[in-house]
Design a protein around this nucleic acid. Sequence first.
DNA 1: TTGAAAGCGCTAACAA
DNA 2: TTGTTAGCGCTTTCAA
Lengths: 335, 335
Amino acid sequence: MTVTIKDVAKKSGVSISTVSRVINNSKPVSNEIRQRVMSVIKETGYVPNPVARSLVTKKSQLIGVIVPDISNFFIGELLNGIEEVGKIYEYDILLCNSYGEMEEELKYINLLKSKQVAGIVFVTWKMSDEHVKAIEEGNLPAVYISKNAHNFDVYSVSIENERAAYEMTKYLIQKGHTNIGFIRSSIEDDLVDSQRFRGYKNALTDSGLEINQRIIKEGDTTSESGYYLMNEILESNDMPHAMFATNDEVAIGAINCILDKGYKVPDDISVVGFNDIKLASLYRPSLTTIKQPIYDMGAVSIRMIVKMIDGEQLEDKHTYLPYELIERQSVKEKK
Amino acid sequence: MTVTIKDVAKKSGVSISTVSRVINNSKPVSNEIRQRVMSVIKETGYVPNPVARSLVTKKSQLIGVIVPDISNFFIGELLNGIEEVGKIYEYDILLCNSYGEMEEELKYINLLKSKQVAGIVFVTWKMSDEHVKAIEEGNLPAVYISKNAHNFDVYSVSIENERAAYEMTKYLIQKGHTNIGFIRSSIEDDLVDSQRFRGYKNALTDSGLEINQRIIKEGDTTSESGYYLMNEILESNDMPHAMFATNDEVAIGAINCILDKGYKVPDDISVVGFNDIKLASLYRPSLTTIKQPIYDMGAVSIRMIVKMIDGEQLEDKHTYLPYELIERQSVKEKK
DNA sequence: TTGAAAGCGCTAACAA
DNA sequence: TTGTTAGCGCTTTCAA
């Protein structure tokens, strides 16, 4: 049989409340009794039942994490950070995979509330008012990780996507490229222009370059989509000097297409991505890209949650983490 | 305020036990009352509190999953299967990242027990008696996913690694290669020779080929390690016709090394991997490899757990799933 | 077929 | 500083 607080109390010759006090450090207990209880705990191997505990406190040591795709490398790395830092503060992760579908996401939000999780980390490709409303209703600490989180009045973690994309585009221009294309995601908000795309456009405009709509394409964020869209561009006979893809998978899909068409990267066309997933350095030519501090984003988000649970005040709602432009082999100076 | 069973009972004019009966379908309830209660439930939006429920039943709708590395693609895909099928049976996933460290793994096993999880899926690079003992003590349904799980008297899911490696080696031989090297993992049991390595050796022996120790290396299961070990081989001046790596990451590391040394794949050296991670098809040259049904492995494992929870009998302890040899560009016929 | 009541293991208010 | 006691929301005997 598992040992309960009662057993410990009996064996130590004290009341269960005293035992409760020593395990929670909640109220002063005389040193002598504390010692006694502690030794009984050690001896019996007693572990407080977290279920009973949550029933009365209405809080658990569980943090719910909703993600759109567990098998996505970006998400995996994020979970690493979340898990590791969570563990430091003794929180466990209740994982929910939403497939990026709004309905699933809302369902999980409610599920997590009923499970009495202490907080929620909500990761999504694209967030909306409905998400926010559902989560706010639970009155739970929550942190959002989403490309468009900064458009909402919520706690979030991200990098400055627009500035990073601006820098990357400037980098390409500096390398002598002028006809620079962009492959963007169709998930991104059409009204509120996506940040990365905006950074790209601004950099071109600021440099007095034309925005060439013929080499700007829009599609999924997969490598297949990158391949397909690049193919469209190559067949249109408007040869770009360089291509900027909204993420690394798309960039690699595009490179595969360029290679398959018999062109060379970076000799004929330079290509850059965004995110710096593992693949980016493994692939040949290795990919020049923007490195997001993915692990740190997970770590910071969970740290924020814990602070909120503990009632601490957070300075800023939106936390921006530093990014880095990683130069590799996929870009070449334009002669 | 959240609505409880009491509120529903009061509003329906019945006792809480009756409400409990209708939500659990546990005992006959007259149709009229059932209707009434149901409509109150709908109206109030009542959701049973799972925490209170587990406290009395000593069971939760939680399945604990311990994995060695969340950000590993193989694991991500596995989690996908686990999560999705778990959801069908209304189980949630409590995720634990052990970093493959025995101490962490044992700690998590105990944690999961105290959380009253209904079952455990234990994924590890290398399992041991200690793991089994710790889990068995909890008297919980458990399924193991590990390369060496078949050596233990436990429920497990895997593919026939040895046979797959044998086939792959035969395939290489059939392509005219005779001097075939192998890069194995040092994690794998030294006494009980690793299955993949054994399959490789048997295929060579059965074909009357020599096992050339100079082109057999051992190291981590990372691409860096693959690169490093391949470099050792190339510098030894014993040029292999083909290399078989214990997994795709290692294979790609090896290819990168070969390419960097100025050789060509597959023209100079053919390379094959194992697992068929996403990268395998994205990389150029795309990688010939063994495709494991990773998603299915997760799905099957959770299905087994659910059956065990429900007290159903399972036919076999070890479930073997079908694999497939995927031919791509990294292998060429030897002239 | 229904209801009353005990109890799951714990915390926290209240008394002493 | 310690103990008594009332729940937390639910399931499950036991009796009616």
